[in-house]
Amino acid sequence: MNNLVSVIVPVYNRAHLVSEAIQSILSQTYESVEIIIINDGSTDGSLSILRDYERKFPEQIRVIDQPNQGQIIARNNGVKIAQGKYIAFLDSDDIWLERKLERQMSLFGPGVGLVYSGTEIINEEGKTIRVEPADENMSGNIYPQLLVKNRMTGGTVVVTAEALKRVGVFSTDFRAAENWDLWLRICKVYQARVVTDPLIKYRVHSNNMSGDTQLMLEAKLKIIEKHCNMESKDPDIARYSRLAHADYHYREGLNYFAKAQYRFARREFFSVLGFSILYEDTWLRLARSLLGERGNRLLRGLK
């Protein structure tokens, strides 16, 4: 089927949440969908739930059971057997809004390799914490801007199978930010389109990898080393590569500042200025890091 979307869902010990994720795919107003669920060695009864869905929807759902190998390999194994012209991803603890695919599929056209959307952040109980609309300007050739920070929650993204065939799948070289790496590889050679409205409910909880600050900083540095080129002849790539370095040091500075390690924070904020003289609130952060623990304690007391 020319417009078939293959939805890849890796599952590891999500017996209490996975049904909600699957139902959100089955409820899509866009009907040409196959669901490939990879049980990644679950030990909590998830597989039994998945097999029940497979029996109820044999034409639409396929379950692959594998020993635990991690989310990256699980997704890649799903991509290998996908039949769709388009590939979408959903984590087993997140939820799609019912018009998600319908609204995105209409944006694909010649030269477009990726379509994403805004995100609604929910807590473990499913209550909305905040809504994060996507930036309407992050459409078209977004590769240079994407070097600075990832703008896409993985579950919002739909890509073409052609794009994955050309640039490859998720890299196992990454412990985190493998999504960002793949979006960069796609956006380097294809256009992106965006639905600014949130089309997914992204669940925040203690197991989210994005909550591991040090891991994400290491991943960000790996992205910079792989993709950024401050000497590029393309002025946009050179400029945004410098901003990517600035953002990395800014995030490192914030991390040290939050731990009251002001000397290390100061070093990082000075590094930011070497790449961008007016990045975010670096000057203010630098001034506060010069105040030390006593000065910052006083400032907090004045608020």
Rank of each mutant, 00 (worst) to 15 (best):
Asp236Pro: 00
Glu225Ala: 08
Ala219Ser: 13
Asn229His: 10
Val169Thr: 15
Ser271Ile: 00
Leu284Lys: 11
Asn179Cys: 01
Tyr256Lys: 10
Pro235Met: 03
Gly274Asp: 11
Tyr248Ala: 00
Ile237Trp: 03
Arg285Lys: 15
Pro235Leu: 03
Leu299Arg: 14
Glu231Lys: 13
Glu231Gln: 13
Asn208Ile: 01
Asn207Ala: 12
Ser171Asn: 15
Asp181His: 09
Tyr256Ser: 06
Trp283Cys: 10
Glu280Cys: 02
Leu284His: 09
Asp247Tyr: 03
Thr282His: 06
Val204Thr: 12
Ala265Val: 06
Ile237Tyr: 04
Gly301Thr: 04
Leu254Lys: 10
Gln191Ile: 01
Tyr250Leu: 05
Leu299Ala: 10
Thr282Ser: 14
His205Gly: 14
Glu178Met: 04
Trp183Thr: 10
Phe264Ala: 13
Ala260Asn: 11
Phe269Met: 10
Val167Leu: 09
Ala244Trp: 00
Thr213His: 09
Gly253Trp: 01
Thr282Cys: 14
Val272Glu: 01
Pro198Cys: 06
Lys226Gly: 02
Phe275His: 12
Leu243Cys: 00
Val272Ala: 08
Thr213Arg: 12
Val194Asn: 04
Tyr279Ile: 09
Ser210Asp: 07
Asp281Trp: 02
Lys303Arg: 15
Leu182Phe: 07
Arg203His: 11
Phe269Asn: 08
Arg263Ile: 10
Ser271Cys: 12
Ser271Leu: 14
Leu243Tyr: 04
Leu278Ala: 13
Gly292Asp: 05
Asp173Asn: 15
Met209Phe: 03
Leu184Cys: 03
Ser289Asp: 01
Ile277Trp: 08
Pro235Cys: 06
His227Asp: 02
Tyr240Glu: 06
Arg203Ser: 13
Ala192Met: 04
Ala260Arg: 12
Arg193Thr: 01
Met230Thr: 14
Arg203Asn: 13
Arg242Phe: 00
Lys201Asp: 06
Arg175Gln: 12
Phe174Arg: 07
Leu182Ser: 08
Asp212Gln: 11
Pro198Phe: 04
Tyr279Leu: 04
Gly274Ile: 02
Gly301Arg: 14
Asn207Ser: 15
Pro235Phe: 05
Gly274Trp: 00
Met209Tyr: 04
Ala265Gly: 09
